[in-house]
């Protein structure tokens, strides 16, 4: 009678139709010394399950956490939420420091890569400034006019010097002609 019952259970087991209670009965049967020879071939399978259950995790290898007090995983009666920063403790200062760092870094990077006006020195006396497109157009026009005026003045000055040199040369030629 018991053998028939066990044969039925083992067939149900392999069909995936046994309940937890029936599987417990099977484990008990296959852990006993009184196993029918026709079912003995299945004994290693149930022995395997029992051996595997004995594999344990070494408690010493559990992570060590800083807080020593136990933390409830269920809501406690009478407790209220303390808010993000209050609950997280030092989190606020970490976030504040991070924001300050990012702000300083952003300003520094902006300064480094900010387009600057290109200055062309002219013998240390005057300079032409090529302005960025974002500057005031009127200011740019004024500076261009100043630059052109400077060029014009220098060219006029060069013309005067040339005329003066030619005059000196003519005088010298006349003197030589008189002496001859």
């Amino acid at each position: 009678m018991k053998l028939d019952r066990m044969k039925d259970l083992i067939e149900k087991y392999f069909a995936g139709e046994t309940s937890l209670e029936e599987e417990k009965i099977l484990r008990g049967y296959f852990s006993s010394p009184d196993i029918d020879p026709s079912l003995r071939k299945y004994q290693p399978l149930f022995q395997f399950f029992e051996v595997e259950k004995d594999v344990v995790f070494d408690a010493d290898k559990l992570p060590k956490f800083q807080e020593t007090k136990t933390v409830s995983l269920q809501p406690q009666v009478g407790t209220q939420s303390k808010g993000l920063f209050a609950r997280k403790g030092g989190q606020f200062w970490k976030i504040a420091a991070a924001v300050a760092f990012l702000a300083i870094a952003s300003v520094s990077i902006f300064k480094v890569f900010e387009p600057k006006p290109i200055e062309i020195a002219h013998k240390g006396k005057a300079k032409v400034i090529i302005l960025d497109e974002n500057d005031n157009p009127e200011e740019a026009l004024k500076q261009v006019n100043d630059a052109l005026a400077l060029v014009s003045k220098k060219m006029k000055k060069g013309k005067d010097k040339t005329n003066e040199s030619l005059l000196k040369l003519r005088n010298a030629t006349e003197i030589l002609n008189h002496e001859n």
């Binding site: 595997e52 594999v55 995790f57 559990l62 136990t70 933390v71 995983l73």
Partner: peptide, 21 residues
Amino acid sequence: MMNFEKLATNVKDKLYRFALR
């Protein structure tokens, strides 16, 4: 009432066997 230590103690072996599988 369940707490972290109790949870860890209760499930550590099961999790380990599962991960090992």
